[in-house]
Structures are given as C-alpha cells and as structure tokens.
C-alpha cells in the first residue's frame, strides 16, 4: 500500500515482460454498469508499505 504520487515517483525499473490481463467486472455509474476491459503492464519496481492482513 502507499500514496499514489510517492509510489509513482519511487518507480525505478520496469521489466520487459509486458502482459495484459482480462478485467471482467468493472462497475461504474448509476444505474451500475459492469464493463469488460483489459489492463496490463510489466514487472514494476518501486517502494511501498508491505503488511500481512492476518
């Protein structure tokens, strides 16, 4: 987890392993609309806070 601009500024390397994943249920609007789309990227290195949730 992190703060967006701090995390974006911390990115110092992006991989050459670009991959696209399917997103099948993104909701938006009133009445709610579910939409399909793609999202992707390579491996990304940056600084963030890591913690276990249990």
């Amino acid at each position: 987890m992190g703060i967006a601009p701090e995390f974006f500024e911390s990115i110092d390397a992006c991989g050459n392993d670009f991959t696209i994943r399917p997103i099948t249920n993104c909701g938006k609007g009133d009445p709610m609309q579910s939409m399909i789309m793609g999202n992707g990227g390579p491996s990304v290195r940056g600084i963030a806070t890591v913690k276990s949730v249990n």
Binding site: A4, T49, V50
Partner: peptide, 23 residues
C-alpha cells in the same frame, strides 16, 4: 506473515494489471 515495513517491492505483471486499473 510479513512484518509491516516500507520496502522495495517488485510487482509481477498480474499484480501490476490491477494496480494500473485502480490508481
């Protein structure tokens, strides 16, 4: 479990896909 810490993370492409979607 991981201890809470601010650290360097290498995120794989599957995780980055959701990160890109959201932020």
């Amino acid at each position: 479990p991981a201890k809470e810490e601010k650290a360097t993370v290498v995120m794989n492409p599957d995780f980055v896909s959701l990160l890109t979607h959201e932020i």
